[in-house]
Amino acid sequence: MHASTKRTCLAGLIAVILLVLAGFVFQHWQTWILFTATKAIGYGLVALGIITLMRGGLVSFGQGLVYCTGAYASGLMATRLGVTDAPVLLVVGMLASALLALIVSPLIARYRGIFFAMLTVALSMVLYGVLVKMNAIGGSDGFTLPEPTFLGWQPSVDYADLALYLLAAVVAVVASTATRLYYDSMAGLVALAVRENELRVEYLGSSVFKVTVRHFTIAGALGGLGGTLNGMALGHIDPLFSFWTTSGEFVFIAVLAGYISVSAVFLSAMILELVRSFSNLYFPETWQLILGGFLIVVIVFLPGGIGSFWERVKEGRAARAQAEQEEGAGS
């Protein structure tokens, strides 16, 4: 195994252990964090998909499409077929969304920039419009989901939040480790070249189209995971999952995180949830203003997102080390 691969997997392992420990701590102290963290992970997974697209120079303003597809596919599976096993539902949601993304992507992969973004919005709003009219599955009111089980085990009410959080934590780490490995692979690095200069990538014999299709499908799978996870956490899904404001939140998280770091996505999702929740509590009439102000502050002071903050610290340290070395050499 490559050294960097090993490092990434090790980091993932450490992250799982820490997140699981944190889960048990929060179970006995401030239980509400478990649910907020689970929801943040669900959002973070979708935003991770947007970041994958961002590495290829594209932003999707319509990830609600895959988020909602995942939630509805797994939700219908649970209500209509009685499958309540959470890991199974996650796989179902992920595959359904990935499949939809795979079908849709050739249509939109030829477009760039704002055209790509607007097409994704259009598609997500089409899904929203269809679901609102489908009264058989609840129309605009959506439908309620049964409690999830975990490999045949039904946790008691006191442990339901914890069980779902633990599953979410494992999914988040597996997904982010896998995407990190992909980003660092040859195929993943080509995406960065696409971001820099598409024409040159084509001349060098790579296909921008294929990169986009691949990324959109990966983003679809991640979106499906996030949608299923949040559906199970909330216990209710409705067409608003596909509404443009929902998609906007994913972009918000992605912009806040930046495209450099994978773990920053989950951190920024958590920050967003906390800022929103507390501003809603303390400023019920102006919470949107606080949220908007917060985003502006991040854009002004950390244009590369939270992820770039660590890079900056790292660079600063490297620069200092180099300066010290030069000084040492000079004396």
């Binding site: 960097s4 490092r7 990434t8 090790l10 980091a11 993932g12 450490i14 992250a15 820490l18 997140l19 944190a22 401030q30 964090i33 990190r180 770091s261 773990s263 920053a264 989950f266 951190l267 958590m270 920050i271 906390l274 507390f278 992820g307 660590w310 790292k314």
Partner: peptide, 23 residues
Amino acid sequence: MVNTTLKSLMAGAAMAALGLAAA
């Protein structure tokens, strides 16, 4: 990567603590 993950977790914990203090 190890570094960034650990730092993100630490930062997350700090954030959570802040949230709790506010609560």
